[in-house]
Amino acid sequence: MKNLEEIVFSIIIHGGNARAKAYEALKAAEEGDFKTAEKLILEADEEIGNAHRIQTDIIQKEAGGEKVELSVLFVHAQDHLMTAISEKGLIENMIRLYKRVNELEKWI
C-alpha cells in the first residue's frame, strides 16, 4: 500500500484534475460547444470518482480499526476534493443556463 503522503497527493491531484476539467467544460459551454462540455463534465466525474474511492478506502480502514494518521496535508486534500465537487456542481448549473441562453438566442 502507498504511504499516507502518496495517498493524500493522489486525492489532491484527482481533485485538481476534476476542477480543471469542470472549468474547461464551462469555457466550452460559454463558446456554445455543449457536446465538449458534456464530455469534460464526464471526465471531471471520473476524476472525482477516483479521488472518492481513495478517500473511501481510508475511511473504511479507520472504521475497521486501523489507525489513520491525520495531518494538515490530509485535511487539505479533503478540502481540495470537496471544493472540486462543489464547484463542479455549480458549473453544471451554469452550463444548463448557457444552454437555455443559447436556445433563447436562436429564437431572437
Rank of each mutant, 00 (worst) to 15 (best):
K2H: 14
L4I: 12
L4C: 08
I7E: 07
I7R: 02
V8M: 03
S10E: 15
I11L: 06
G16F: 04
N17H: 03
K21F: 11
A25K: 02
K27H: 14
A28Q: 04
E30M: 08
K35N: 05
A37T: 00
E38Q: 10
L40F: 12
I41N: 09
E46R: 13
G49D: 08
N50L: 11
N50H: 14
H52E: 11
H52P: 12
I54Y: 05
Q55D: 05
D57Y: 05
D57P: 04
I58E: 08
I59L: 09
G65W: 00
G65H: 08
E66V: 10
V68T: 02
L70T: 09
L70E: 05
L73S: 07
F74I: 03
F74Y: 14
Q78P: 10
Q78I: 01
L81W: 08
L81H: 07
T83E: 10
T83F: 05
A84Q: 03
I85R: 10
S86M: 15
S86K: 11
E87W: 11
G89N: 13
L90T: 14
N93W: 00
M94Q: 07
I95W: 01
I95G: 09
L97T: 13
Y98R: 08
K99F: 13
V101H: 05
E103Y: 01
E103C: 02
E103M: 08
E105D: 12
E105Q: 13
